[in-house]
Each structure stands twice: as structure tokens, then as C-alpha cells.
Design a protein around this nucleic acid. Structure first.
Lengths: 223, 223
DNA sequence: TTAAAACTTAATAATATCTTAATGTTAGCT
DNA sequence: AGCTAACATTAAGATATTATTAAGTTTTAA
């Protein structure tokens, strides 16, 4: 899952970034409204965390503008203000949730997970296909009763495949959601990771879950 | 474990604070109802100690309001009143326990431990994995029959890992529960403490209990 | 007030993960 | 079947993360 943090306080932004990376997100940062709006429009994110008080363009305007352009990525607004009117304005402007500063990271995390679940129409937190189970919150994966140990990137890719189970996902979609902005997409990394994932997820099992769709991409499904 | 004290008498608040810090808690303080309510909503605590007579917003109202917002953190109410009606009102409003002033610190401590145990659904007070035993009440730790001497922070971290055994906990989660919220989350303190914990807990034992989950955090388990 | 203990920071070493690139294999087309 | 492009696999090099140490700072307790 890929997140954009639009926040001018560098330190806060970095703390949130660190926490989200630990949770397995790919994270991009913007430090003013203009940069944020640009990135939000040109890249594809699963979530946007948006501060209200920002240089150049105010957060509420960024939000309004993105919604006008039909960008539906879930937005969580961060605000130092606590009065009811501000909260209402935030939501009127098209945000999906808000959180007042200062906040505990756990709180932020819980809300992001809720937003993601909602936007994927998922009620459960555990992703599964056949006897494979992946828990993005606890960071665990198992097939049958065999625990699968995965590196961060392997985990993200498997999670992405599972969130789109029964659909073909292209290599480009994978790189866009698993890597951040600084990544040079012209390589065979995805193939390499899929190979190691297969070793860990499918090796030794009769029913191979990860399929290649020649010329298109990969797919995970029950068959 | 992290506690919020909402109490306007500075001196009392500080005494409780000091006692709890000695017990290994991370402590935040609020000196009126409004501040308290705000912190309780925006941060994540394991316990709240709440005075009734408070400036700005009354303690009972704070409690009611938190419960309305589905915040389930255990609340212990402090009150100078001793009549039965007051106690009843306190509990009706969603508090978990009450204590009348003046009180002995030991009494407060015992009740807090009881609340914590209840909220963690633990019938036993001793946390253990394999041959490692940690007693949060007595503040002792031993592995096999070797007594382990730990500093307060070391103890808190080990306790936190044990309360979440078999789960990965991130560095961010650890800092949020072990330090109070003025803490600079972008340092490697946690790593340093884990190193010393390993020296004390795992050194000399074949079965290493503290594991690193690269890119995510740490985990303690039986294996 | 002072000494000891505990905590924090920062630098360097060790290690795991990621990335690239080369080579081998398979699928789809003529 | 043979050819080509796409995919799979491997392993070595680059990078990032974690471990460890030691020195500085703060806190605690006598």
C-alpha cells in the first residue's frame, strides 16, 4: 500500500513516515500544498494524509481540488484545530476522516486501516485465498499451518496480490503500489520477487496460487 | 504501560506521577478537564486516573464523554466525596473503579494493577515465555532460576514485548508505550535497549527469545 | 553536592534485503 | 518445428537496516 503524506512539519512527517514504513507502507512525502497536490494528481496512492495548515496551498483547498478532479483516494485530514466547525468543514470538503494533533501513532494507524478496509470494501482484516492467510496488521502470513516468513517487499507484493485476488495485476501496478516515488521502474525486480514468493508460498504445495498471465502480469486465486 | 493523570492539585498529581514512574509507567499529566479530555482522545493510554473536581470540565463529564466516544481505556476515578451516591454515579458514568482521597499509594497501585490485569484479560499476573518469567507487580524478572536485574526502561520494554508475545511490535509501538509523548521518535534508543536486554535475557542461553523482524520490529516468542 | 546509575546520542561494524544483470526456460506465434 | 519475446532463475554487488560500542548527558539517591 502506498501513502502520500502532505505535511510541512518535517519532523512530524518523518515520524509518521517511519511508523508507516514499519507497517509495510510505501511512503511519499510532500512539504507544501502545491507539491502535495501535484503528487496526488500524478501518482497513484492508496491513501493520503493531509495537513490543513500548509504553505502555498491550504490543505482544505488541496482536498477540494482533488475531489473536483474526481480523484477518490481516501484522505485523512490532520488538523491542530479542535472546534467542531473545523471538523465539519474538513469532511464537507471531501475528506474521509480527520485526526487532531497531537495524536498517537496507534490512533493514526487504526484510522488508516479502517479507511483502507472501507475503500476496498473489506470487512475483514485478514486476507485469504484457499489455505493462504495474510494479516497485514500483525504482519504474518501462513499457508495451512506452515508459517511463512517474508521480507518487507515480499510481504507488500503478496498483500497487493491478495487485495486484488482473482484479478490480473500488471507489473506496473505492482511497482506503483509497492515502491515509492524514487523508484526506477525499468527493471525485472517484480519478476525476481515473484520468484522468491513462489518459493515461499507455493513450493511444496500442489495447488499453485500465484499464476502468470503471459503478456499481462500476475494473478492470485483459488482456481 | 502508559498512564494519564487528570488532576488539578499539582502536588498530588506529581506524587502519583513519581510513584508510577518508579513502577515503570510512562506518565502524562493534565491539570484540568478540558486538557485531560483532549489528551485522552488523541493519545493512547493503558489507564486513566481521573479526579472528579476539576477546572473547566468536571471529571464525571470527561468520563461520560470518553465512553460516548467509544474510548474504552480503563478509568480509575479519584474523589474526595465518600457517600454511596457519588460512588454509584462514578461507576454509572463508565468508570472502572474509584478511590477516595486521601489514599495510600500502595492502594492506588494495587487497584491500577487489577484494572490492567482485567483489561488485558489476564488472570495471572506473571508474564512468561519459555523459561523467562516477568512479574509486573513485583517488578522482577528471571530466566530459569537466574534472576535478571533490569533498569526501569529495560523492564518496560520487556514487559511490553511479553504482553504482545508472538506478535511483531514495531519500534514506534514500543516508543509510544514506554516513553511519554514528548519523546523524539527518530532515534535508535529502542535498538540500544534491545541490545542490552538481549545481553541480560538471552546471553548464555541457546534458545534466543528476542527476535528481530527485519524492516518491521521485534518479537518475543517460544519459537 | 557529588557519585553512581540510567538514559540518549552518534559513530562504526555486521548483516539482511534489495537490485541488477546475465543466463536459462517457457509460451505463443508463423 | 523453429523463432522470438516474455518470463524464470540465479548469484553477485549495492544499499539499507540493525547491532554494538562508547562517550556524553541527565537523573537519581546518598
Amino acid at each position: 500500500m502506498r501513502v502520500l503524506i502532505i505535511e510541512d512539519e518535517r519532523k512530524l512527517s518523518n515520524i509518521v513516515r517511519k511508523g508507516l514504513i514499519e507497517e509495510g507502507f510505501a511512503v511519499d512525502q510532500a512539504f507544501d500544498g502545491e507539491e502535495g497536490q501535484y503528487l496526488a494528481e500524478s501518482e497513484s496512492y492508496d491513501l493520503i494524509i493531509l495537513d490543513v495548515m500548509l504553505p502555498k496551498i491550504n490543505g482544505l483547498d488541496v482536498c477540494r481540488s482533488l475531489r473536483n478532479k474526481k480523484i477518490t483516494t481516501p484522505i485523512l485530514i490532520l488538523t491542530a484545530k479542535t472546534t467542531v466547525e473545523d471538523k465539519v468543514e474538513g469532511l464537507n470538503v471531501g475528506a474521509d476522516d480527520y485526526l487532531t494533533k497531537p495524536f498517537a501513532f496507534t490512533e493514526l494507524k487504526a484510522r488508516l486501516q479502517a479507511l483502507l478496509r472501507r475503500s476496498h470494501n473489506q470487512t475483514q482484516t485478514i486476507l485469504q485465498v484457499d489455505d493462504l492467510e495474510v494479516d497485514p496488521v500483525k504482519h504474518t502470513a501462513k499457508r495451512g499451518n506452515k508459517i511463512i516468513s517474508l521480507t518487507p517487499k515480499e510481504f507488500s507484493i503478496l498483500e497487493f496480490l491478495l487485495r486484488h485476488q482473482n484479478e490480473v495485476v500488471t507489473r506496473t501496478q505492482i511497482t506503483e503500489h509497492v515502491w515509492d516515488y524514487n523508484f526506477d521502474a525499468l527493471s525485472n525486480v517484480v519478476d525476481v520477487f515473484v520468484a522468491t514468493l513462489r518459493k515461499k508460498v507455493d513450493f511444496g504445495f500442489k495447488n499453485k496460487l500465484i499464476q502468470t498471465i503471459h503478456g499481462v502480469g500476475y494473478k492470485i486465486n483459488k482456481k
